[in-house]
Design a protein around this nucleic acid. Structure first.
Lengths: 205, 205
DNA sequence: TAACATAGAATGAGCGTTCAATCTAGATCA
DNA sequence: TGATCTAGATTGAACGCTCATTCTATGTTA
């Protein structure tokens, strides 16, 4: 590869170009799905020729993989953030507000659902998704265990793992709810989610 | 129309043909997504020529709509069943086992996610999905209210609605969990879901 | 000039869809 | 009964188009 020969500004420029393509691809994938969106469409949104996209990505599959990774990266930093923050029950319950808001963000939810649907049939995408999920689960498990410990509960691994799955299902399911019932009362749901999380964190099991 | 001139066996045969096409389409859509699957593919699986499919469906979009309706019909009978059954807390908690099992059924979950992802961008599909969701929500709300009343709780509409959303999110989210973490401990998750439902049904709010 | 960025045309495959031609099975009639 | 008719079922080729991808030619810049 000739990456070493390129000047910093050239590398920067190339990186910007890649970003431009990924940004356009995300828009198109949201509107038409991975298979419904075409390279021609993406190139038009990105403001460059179709052929030129192939200077930055081997093929469409590589663009999809990059979009999936990008989407998950965000989730990873988020769970790391939650982990790094003070592991207090009330802080976590407070975080529910933002979690609900983001699950209901229509643009984000649409793309995330596209990613999961693709993971259900594309083994390469499934690998990326699953390894990111592993990291997130572990991070959330550590957070939950710390909070439960602080309240005097000593749960076994299976209890913590099932709590992780329940919480993940709640927020991931909320993305689906936002699509199936857009008129949902968000404030009421937020309160219900907070109350449920409080029960989970405080009750014996 | 000439439907009245046709003999019952002819109508039956035509219905069987339609079913054959829908069954093949469901398989193809699961494997490749709505846009990834082609009419040629579907016709091969259905064991008939590509052209012949157009005697039974106007176009591919109509096949998608039929698949979506079919998928939701199942959900409708299910929620009606739950409603018609004895509205007892423990019966409902018992039902969780089957709900979890079905949310984790990989074939069903894959297609359902495809439907939701399509609903996020296709207004026609969104309409079908939302009107089915309305019916299911109302049915579930009635069931929940009856159980809560029997336990002496008198919740307002917003409390019941948010409980409906939470439960729906849990089970719909579980479909996503099954894809993102196929190694999940199903028994532990079932127990956790049951315990959580019991808390929801019995606790004040 | 040399190397890379970029556009845009070319390619061949595959798409959804249409359609004329054939098959099939039951109705009609000799 | 056996021949003929007929209408729907079914096929497979063909259409026009769009797809992902490649190739070639032309800028651009250092």
């Amino acid at each position: 590869m000739s990456a070493e020969h390129r000047s910093p500004s050239e590398q920067q420029r190339a990186e910007a170009r890649r970003e431009q393509i990924l940004c356009a691809a995300a828009t198109c994938f949201r509107n038409s799905g991975f298979h419904g969106a075409s390279i021609a469409q993406i190139s038009k949104v990105a403001g460059m020729s179709a052929g030129h996209i192939y200077h930055y990505f081997d093929n469409k599959e590589a663009i999809i993989a990059a979009i999936v990774e990008r989407d998950l990266e965000y989730l990873l930093t988020l769970s790391a953030e939650l982990r790094a923050a003070r592991d207090t029950r009330e802080a976590m319950i407070e975080h529910v507000t933002e979690g609900v808001r983001r699950s209901l963000e229509p643009l984000e939810a649409g793309l995330k659902l596209e990613v999961v649907a693709e993971a259900a049939r594309n083994p390469h995408v499934a690998d990326i998704v699953r390894s990111a999920d592993d990291v997130c689960r572990n991070s959330l498990a550590a957070t939950l265990r710390a909070i439960r410990r602080a309240d005097g509960h000593d749960d076994d691994d299976s209890a913590i793992a099932s709590m992780v799955e329940l919480l993940a299902a709640m927020f991931e399911g909320l993305m689906i709810r936002g699509i199936r019932n857009p008129q949902m009362d968000r404030a009421a749901v937020t309160r219900r989610f907070q109350a449920t999380l409080r029960l989970l964190l405080t009750q014996g099991y």
